[in-house]
Amino acid sequence: MHISEGVLSPSILVAGAALTTAGVAIGLKHIDQKDIPTVGILSAAFFVASLVHVPLGPISVHLILNGLLGFILGWKAFPAILVGLTLQALLFQYGGITTLGVNTLNMALPAVTCYYFFGRVVRNNSGRLGFSIAAFACGCCAVLLSGILVALSLYLTGDAFLLAAKVAVAAHLPVMLIEGLLTAACTLFLRRVKPELLEGQYAQKL
């Protein structure tokens, strides 16, 4: 999912950076003092998740965890993902510094979108089953949307969209499944032991 340097055209890089800046600004506004440790821990989890590699098929892919971040953090996923990606680019040479804006957008925007789509369940205070399904869908769809956004960025530079999208989505099918399960497990656990962590976020005015 990390787009390397020198692949995208400058206009897309600038547009991605601008949108990411806006997203990060909104995210930072949402961060309260008591949220800071949560954002930090999830950012660290995101940073490490890229090292968990799923060895299936000819292409190797890794966990992303943007669904989990979106589900728990909402807009705050933007700064958390930006920090994680910056460190991945600097320390692991995944992606690159110039593509940081586009890569952050590709991973954080699905996180926020899924938060709005599936976060409703938590606000409506539904049962355990509904909650698990919503969390699973959140983890799944965030990865799916990320794949589509990556394909879209490549398409805007001149690649064939359908082919790029097919490759990105097909390669991430196992990751989608794993991330869905992981998101559901993590959030169910949080709901049991620390529900205010979820409710605090969802009680916020949107």
Partner: peptide
């Protein structure tokens, strides 16, 4: 402990770490 579990997973897979070509 969850955090360290993820870390452990990461290290276990080190021979197959990917996403840089």
């Amino acid at each position: 402990s969850c955090f360290f579990a993820v870390l452990w997973l990461a290290f276990c897979n080190t021979p197959a770490i990917a996403h840089k070509v």
